[in-house]
Design a protein around this nucleic acid. Structure first.
Lengths: 134, 134
DNA sequence: TTTTAAGTCTATAAACAATATAGACATGAG
DNA sequence: CTCATGTCTATATTGTTTATAGACTTAAAA
């Protein structure tokens, strides 16, 4: 489970939105500056998060983005799965994104990576955005 | 820690060599066929493993590859670090391959990925090739 | 009603990594 | 000598990542 830079940006941006949950929407430009994320890239990330229902947008002047749900209800696992796909180290150890890979030939080897997937999933599913607002 | 196909091949090939540790060296061709690994790709993988001291080679007719150490002394972590690099999900949570990444801006977030790295490292460092010989 | 500050959408560029494939060469057993 | 093996380096192919660009739409406020 290697995290892309895009996932890192997405998590930072969502934690930023969490800080003003219930208040005014945040502008892309402001989130971009506060977290040092390239603005045009952040636009794409927010669009993707919006498509998946994690944020809502408001157009026009005074527009911006807000979380679509309380920070407690958005987990790290959900965001990383959305942006990067499988949490498992190998496709054949993945539940949500299973695919055949060579390592299946050795069942004990495969089992190790399934156990790692279980530990990682459990941890990332147990942590929500609310855990990262200072 | 996403495993590349190359790492999967390397692990399968090394377990194969483990099965005949102490016996005749194994030919690339045979390892290739037994594990369904492209032969020319496997050549490169063995060269890399040899460079790192995990296998020894014998040239000429009756040549081939053998483990350079007992299977108990080669861990999954060593091989994966050699082929794929960091075990950590983000560069800034890596000990062996540290680099700055955006997620450092949120220390609690970074801490989660350090904890995951610790769990994963511990597991992969505790498992050696001998654990996978049937 | 016009202006302007916002989000939307789609294309594409640049760099890099993953996954091989190719072929000329070196070595050593028989 | 021959031939089965490993060695070395180059290159091809494809996909992914990380953006950047620009024309378009929307809505608040003057």
């Amino acid at each position: 489970m290697r995290l892309s830079r895009k996932s890192e940006y997405a998590l930072l941006a969502l934690v930023d939105l969490s800080r003003q949950y219930g208040k005014e929407p945040a502008k892309i430009m402001d989130v971009s500056i506060r977290n040092d994320i390239p603005k045009k890239y952040l636009e794409q990330i927010f669009l993707q998060l919006k498509g998946a229902g994690y944020v809502r947008s408001f157009r026009g002047a005074n527009g911006g983005y807000s979380l679509a749900k309380p920070p407690e209800e958005i987990t790290l696992a959900q965001i990383i799965r959305l942006i990067d796909g499988p949490l498992a180290s190998v496709g054949s150890a993945s539940l949500y994104y299973f695919e055949h890979t060579p390592i299946e030939k050795n069942k004990k080897l495969l089992q190790v990576f399934k156990e790692i997937r279980d530990e990682v999933s459990e941890k990332l599913e147990s942590m929500s955005l609310s855990d990262f607002v200072d």
